[in-house]
Nucleic acid binder design. Structure first.
Length: 933
RNA sequence: GCGGGUGUGGUGAAAUUGGUAGACACGCUAGACUUAGGAUCUAGUGCCGCGAGGCAUGGGGGUUCGAGUCCCUCCACCCGCACCA
C-alpha cells in the first residue's frame, strides 16, 4: 500500500484525542520534565511556517522524554492581550475579545494540524478573567512589597512600616529618592498621605512620571512601534514626548540578583551576555559639581574618576530638571529651541545620531578639585534615564566628548601627555595620568582609587554602583489589557483590598473585570479608553467617598511574566498554582523560543519569579533552567522583472539586456524559480495583460532572502504544506533545514527529499499490493548494526537538540535497510519507536499495524547495545606533510609499530617519500597517520 | 551608536574533542522502467585541469606535524535596543 498521509493523519489525530494520550497528571511516580514554548500572540494573519519551528523542536523533546520514562508537561496557551487587536478594533469596530477568540481558534486548528502533543486541558489565555485575576493579584503583591537591602529579599511593606516606626529610614535609603530622610519621629507625626508618599519610594510597584509618545492629532499615546520616522504611523501626524504619571516595577532593586542568577542557568553565553549588558552594572563614582552663582548642584556618575582633572565641560540631558534653573537669560531662547528639537527625537535616534548637536546653557560649574570654571552644555547624546542624566565630559579620554569638544571648539585639557595625540581621545585603560594634580604619574586603577578617597573625604563624591537597567514602565494608556486593581482617593492610590480604601466587600474582590466598551477612543488628557466609562471609573466606598479607578491597563509582558506557573495547575480557583503542583513541576526544564525575548520577557519573568519566591509563594527563584533559542525561518522572496514603461516581464537571466523594475511576486505562483505565468496574470488585475520574454520556454524568477511577511508576498502557510505533504513531512523538513538555533530561508522545493524519505520508510513495512509485509526472521548482524547505530545517534542528537543530524541519520538508516531489503520485525519495531517523536502519525499507524494496542506515545525508547556500535577496524587516512594521500585499514588494537611499518612500506607512501627518510611519523589511534618529511 | 549573532559547493547543510572538508538532502546531468510522469530506480556532480596534479570553509596574517575548528586583524550580512508581542 502507498503511503497515503492524508488518509492516515486525521485518523491518528482522532485516535490520540479519543484516548487522551496527552493528558498529563500532577501526581506521578515518574520523574517530571517540563518543556515549554514561548507563548504565542494570536495575530490575525495566523501561523506561517516560521512559527512552528520551535514548537516542533519542543514537541520532539516532549515525546522523546515521554518515551524515556518522564512525566512530561508540555502545554500551550495564548498571550491574548495586546495592541494589534485593539488597533484592529479601532479600524473595524470589532471587539478585541471577539477577534482574539477567532484568532485563537485558528491558531489551535493550525497547531493541531501539525500533531503537537499539547495537553489542551491546560490551555491558558491571558485575557481570561480567571487568568488575569492572578496577574492582578501579583500586582497587588508587588505594590505591597519592598526590597529590603539588608536581607536582599522582597518583603511585605509591613516590615518597612515597622522599621520606620522604630528607627526611621536611616541605613535603608529609599530607592525612589535616595535623599529622603525620615526619622521615627517624622514618621509618627506625618499624615497618611505623606506616609504613603514615603512608602511609594520603596514599593516594588510604584507610581512615578515618565515620558511617552504623545500624538496630539490622534489624541492618544503611541507605542514606539507606532512612531515611524518621527511621525505617527497612522496618519503621519507629529508626535512629541509627554510626561505622564505611570506605574513602574522596581526591577533595579533586583539588578544584582538578576545578574548573579544567570550563573546557574543553562542558557547560551550570548543570551546571558545580552542580559548582563542590559543590566549594565558598572562601578564608579557619584560626584557633585557646584554651579557658579547658583545653589544648584549637578550630580554625575563616572566610571573613570581618574580622569577628573581632564573635565573640560559638563553635559546635561536636555530634559534634565536643572536646565531651566541654571540657563542664563541670554541663552534661554536657544536652549528651549534645542529642547524642543530633542523632544521630537526617539532615544534610538539620539543614541545613533552621528551629527553632533548641543547647546550651551550659559552656566558654569565649579570643578570640585581644581575650582576651575567649566561650561555646562546640554546635548541629546546624554540620556535622562541613564545614570544621573548628566556627565562630566573628559575630551582627552572619551571619544564622544572629544568629538563634542572639537565640534564646539572647547579647549581640551591633555591629561595623558604623549599618549594623547590631539586627534583622537586616548581611551585605553593602561594610561598613565599626567597634568593631573595629586594623581600625576599614577596608572588608572590607583589614580581612580586616590580620587575616590579624596572625593569621599571632602564629601563631594561617593563610590557608587550604577546600572544601565531602568525600572520597567507598567502602564499603558490602552483598553485591551489587564485593568489595575487600584483606586485613587484624590491623588493617593490604593489597591482595592486595602482597608483604607474602604470599598464594599464585592468591590474588593478580584478580578477587576475589563468592562465592555463600544468605543476604543482614548480618554481625556491622554488617558486610556477606560477613562470614558463613568460606570467603571467611579466607585463609592463604605464611607460614601467617591474613588476613581486607575484607567491605565497593564502592558503585554504582565500576563506572560508568570504564565508558566498557571499551566502547572490551570483550574485552581484558590491560587495561581497550588503549592503541591508548583513544587512538583518546579522550574521549566526546557524553554524554547526566539532570541528577540532576550532582554524583555525573559528578564521580567525572572523578576516575577524571584519576587514570588521571596514572598514565599514559590520554592525556586529562576523560572527557566535551560533555554533553547530557535532561529528565524526567513522568507524566500521571488521577483519578476518588468521592462520600464511596459507591461512586459523579462526572465531573470535575460533581464540585464533591458532596463527593468524588480517586482515581488507571491511565492505561491512560483514552482521553485519557475513562474506560473497564467496564475501570475490572474493574480492582480494590472498584470492581466502581461507579456513575457522567456528563456528555454520558461519564466525564471529572481530570489532574495527576507523576513517572512505578508507585504513581501513570501509567506508560506503550514496548512498548505501539511495538505500537500502531510504533517510528518512538514515536521521533519523543518528540522532537516539546519541547526535549530540558526536562521535559514524557507524553500518549499527542498521538502521533496524528506517526503521521499518517509515514503521509503513506509515501504520498509509495506508491500505495494499486499500491505504489511513485516517478517519474523532473525535479523543479520549488519541489520542490527544499522538499527543500533541509529538508536544511539538519534538519542544523542535529540539530547543535544541537533535535530537536523538526527533526521539525516534516519535517512542513512532507511537507505541502508532498503539496500539490505530488511523487512524484519526485530529491526522495524524498535525503529518505529525511535522515529515516533519526529514523525508521530506514521509511527502510530505502523505501530498499530504491527499489532500493538497501546499508543506509540506510551512506548519506551529502545536501548542500543554496545556490541553493535563499536568497530574493530579503522580505515586510516594516511597523510604526507598533512595532506591526505591514501587510506589504509588496520585493526584498532594493532600495535603502533606494526602499523607504521606497514604504512612506510606501502607503495603509495614510498612514491611520495621519494627515497627520503621521514623526520617524524604522527599516529593518533583511531584517527589518522601523518608522515612529516 | 551600543549589544548579540552568522559567513563552508548552484542551494539547505555535515564535520560533537585541533585529525580524511562537503555526510544527508535539494537542484542539475545522463540513463533505466513506463501509455504517461511533478512516480520509482541507477550513475555522476566543490572549483580549475586532457591528465598528473593544484586550489578550496568571507579577506589577510599567525600558532601547529596538522586549522572550518585556536589567536590577531579587516570585511559583509542578520537580529535586539526598554510602549510590538
Amino acid at each position: 500500500m502507498e503511503y497515503n498521509f492524508s488518509a492516515i493523519e486525521p485518523g491518528i489525530r482522532q485516535f490520540w484525542k479519543e484516548h487522551e494520550v496527552y493528558k498529563v497528571l500532577n501526581d506521578s511516580a515518574q520523574p517530571k520534565y517540563y518543556v515549554l514554548d514561548m507563548f504565542p500572540y494570536p495575530s490575525g494573519s495566523g501561523l506561517h511556517v516560521g512559527h512552528p519551528l520551535g514548537y516542533i523542536a519542543s514537541d520532539i523533546v516532549a515525546r522523546y522524554k515521554k518515551s524515556k520514562g518522564f512525566n512530561v508537561l508540555h502545554p500551550m496557551g495564548f498571550d491574548a492581550f495586546g495592541l494589534p487587536a485593539e488597533q484592529y478594533a479601532i479600524e473595524t469596530g470589532q471587539h478585541p475579545s471577539a477577534t482574539t477568540e477567532k484568532n485563537i481558534k485558528r491558531y489551535k486548528e493550525q497547531l493541531d494540524n501539525i500533531g503537537f502533543c499539547y495537553d489542551w486541558s491546560r490551555e491558558v489565555k491571558t485575557s481570561d478573567p480567571e487568568y488575569y485575576r492572578w496577574t492582578q493579584w501579583i500586582f497587588i503583591q508587588l505594590f505591597k512589597s519592598w526590597y529590603n537591602p539588608l536581607t536582599q529579599k522582597a518583603e511585605s511593606i509591613d516590615s518597612l512600616i515597622r522599621i520606620l516606626e522604630e528607627n526611621g529610614n536611616a541605613g535603608i535609603p529609599a530607592p525612589g529618592d535616595t535623599a529622603l530622610q525620615v526619622s521615627a519621629a517624622d514618621w509618627g507625626s506625618i499624615d497618611e498621605a505623606a506616609r504613603r508618599d514615603v512608602l511609594m519610594q520603596y514599593r516594588l510597584a510604584y507610581l512615578d512620571y515618565a515620558e511617552v509618545w504623545w500624538c496630539d492629532a490622534l489624541g492618544t499615546v503611541l507605542a514606539n512601534d507606532e512612531v515611524v520616522n518621527g511621525v505617527s504611523e497612522r496618519g503621519g501626524h507629529p508626535v512629541e514626548r509627554k510626561r505622564m504619571r505611570q506605574w513602574f516595577l522596581r526591577i533595579t532593586a533586583y539588578a544584582d540578583r538578576l545578574l548573579s542568577g544567570l550563573d546557574g542557568l543553562e542558557w547560551s553565553e550570548a543570551m546571558k551576555e545580552m542580559q548582563r549588558n542590559w543590566i549594565g552594572r558598572s562601578e564608579g563614582a557619584a560626584v557633585q559639581f557646584e554651579v557658579k552663582d547658583s545653589t544648584a548642584r549637578i550630580e554625575v556618575f563616572t566610571t573613570r574618576p581618574d580622569t577628573i582633572f581632564g573635565v573640560d565641560f559638563m553635559v546635561l540631558a536636555p530634559e534634565h530638571e536643572l536646565v531651566a534653573r541654571i540657563t542664563t537669560a541670554d541663552r534661554m531662547a536657544e536652549v528651549e529651541q534645542y529642547q524642543a528639537y530633542v523632544r521630537s527625537r526617539s532615544e534610538r535616534e539620539r543614541m545613533a545620531e552621528k551629527k553632533i548637536t548641543g547647546c550651551f546653557t550659559g552656566a558654569f560649574a565649579i570643578h570640585p578639585v581644581t575650582g576651575r570654571e567649566i561650561p555646562v552644555w546640554i546635548s541629546e547624546y546624554v540620556l535622562a534615564g541613564y545614570g544621573t542624566g548628566a556627565i562630566m565630559a573628559v575630551p582627552a579620554g572619551d571619544d564622544r566628548d572629544h568629538g563634542f569638544a572639537r565640534h564646539f571648539d572647547i579647549p581640551v585639557t591633555n591629561i595623558f601627555g604623549e599618549q594623547y595625540n590631539g586627534e583622537q581621545a586616548y581611551t585605553a585603560k593602561d594610561a598613565v595620568l599626567e597634568n593631573s594634580g595629586f594623581i600625576s604619574g599614577q596608572k588608572v586603577p590607583e589614580a581612580a582609587a586616590a580620587v575616590l578617597d579624596y572625593l569621599e573625604q571632602k564629601g563631594i563624591g561617593t563610590r557608587k554602583v550604577n546600572y544601565k537597567l531602568r525600572d520597567a514602565g507598567f502602564s499603558r494608556q490602552r483598553y485591551w489589557g489587564e485593568p489595575f486593581p487600584v483606586v485613587y482617593k484624590g491623588d493617593i492610590p490604593y489597591t482595592i483590598d486595602e482597608a483604607e480604601a474602604a470599598l464594599p466587600e464585592p468591590l474588593q474582590q478580584l478580578p477587576v473585570v475589563l468592562p465592555h466598551v463600544e468605543s476604543y477612543r482614548p480618554g481625556p488628557e491622554g488617558e486610556g479608553p477606560l477613562a470614558n466609562i463613568d460606570s467603571y471609573l467611579w466607585v463609592t466606598n463604605t464611607r460614601g467617598e467617591q474613588l476613581r479607578r486607575e484607567t491605565n491597563t497593564m502592558p503585554g509582558y504582565a500576563g506572560s511574566s508568570w504564565y508558566f506557573l498557571r499551566y502547572m495547575d490551570p483550574g485552581n480557583a484558590g491560587f495561581l498554582a497550588g503549592k503541591a503542583a508548583a513544587d512538583y513541576w518546579n522550574q521549566v526544564d526546557l524553554y524554547v523560543g526566539g532570541t528577540e525575548h532576550a532582554v524583555g520577557h525573559l528578564l521580567y519573568a525572572r523578576l516575577w519569579t524571584k519576587v514570588l519566591c521571596d514572598l514565599g509563594y514559590l520554592s525556586f527563584d529562576e523560572p527557566f533552567r535551560k533555554l533553547l533559542n530557535q532561529g528565524m525561518i526567513q522568507g524566500s522572496t521571488r521577483f519578476v522583472y518588468r521592462i520600464k514603461g511596459t507591461s512586459t516581464f523579462v526572465s531573470f537571466n535575460l533581464k540585464d539586456q533591458y532596463e527593468t523594475d524588480p517586482i515581488r511576486v507571491d511565492v505561491s505562483l512560483v514552482d521553485g524559480v519557475t513562474l506560473d505565468t497564467e496564475a501570475f496574470k490572474a493574480w492582480r488585475p494590472d498584470f492581466a495583460g502581461a507579456g513575457f520574454i522567456l528563456e528555454d520556454g520558461k519564466y525564471i524568477c529572481g530570489s532574495e532572502t527576507e523576513k517572512m511577511s505578508k507585504s513581501k508576498y513570501n509567506v508560506v502557510n503550514p496548512d498548505d504544506i501539511v495538505r500537500q505533504y502531510g504533517a510528518d513531512t512538514f515536521r521533519m523538513y523543518e528540522m532537516f533545514l539546519g541547526p535549530i538555533e540558526m536562521s535559514k530561508p524557507w524553500d518549499t522545493k527542498g521538502i521533496e527529499g524528506v517526503h521521499k524519505f518517509l515514503k521509503r520508510f513506509w515501504r520498509l513495512f509495506q508491500d505495494e499490493q499486499q500491505g504489511l509485509a513485516v517478517t519474523d526472521e532473525q535479523p543479520s548482524e549488519q541489520e542490527l548494526k544499522v538499527l543500533h547505530r541509529t538508536i544511539k545517534k538519534v538519542e544523542e542528537d535529540t539530547e543535544r537538540f541537533s535535530f537536523n543530524t538526527a533526521v539525516s541519520q534516519f535517512m542513512i538508516c532507511v537507505n541502508e535497510l532498503t539496500d539490505l531489503k530488511c523487512r524484519k520485525r526485530a529491526v522495524l519495531d524498535p525503529l518505529v519507536r525511535v522515529i515516533a517523536p519526529y514523525a508521530p502519525h506514521m509511527a502510530e499507524e505502523l505501530w498499530q499495524q504491527l499489532g500493538h494496542k497501546e499508543s506509540v506515545v506510551a512506548a519506551a525508547y529502545p536501548a542500543w547495545e554496545e556490541r553493535y556500535v563499536v568497530d574493530n577496524t579503522k580505515v586510516y587516512p594516511v597523510a604526507i606533510n598533512g595532506k591526505t594521500r591514501t587510506e589504509m585499514e588496520f585493526a584498532l588494537d594493532a600495535p603502533q609499530a606494526d602499523i607504521e611499518a606497514a604504512v612506510m612500506s606501502s607503495e603509495k607512501v614510498q612514491h611520495y617519500l621519494e627515497g627520503k627518510t621521514p623526520k617524524k611519523v604522527i599516529f593518533v589511534k583511531g584517527r589518522m597517520i601523518n608522515i612529516v618529511l
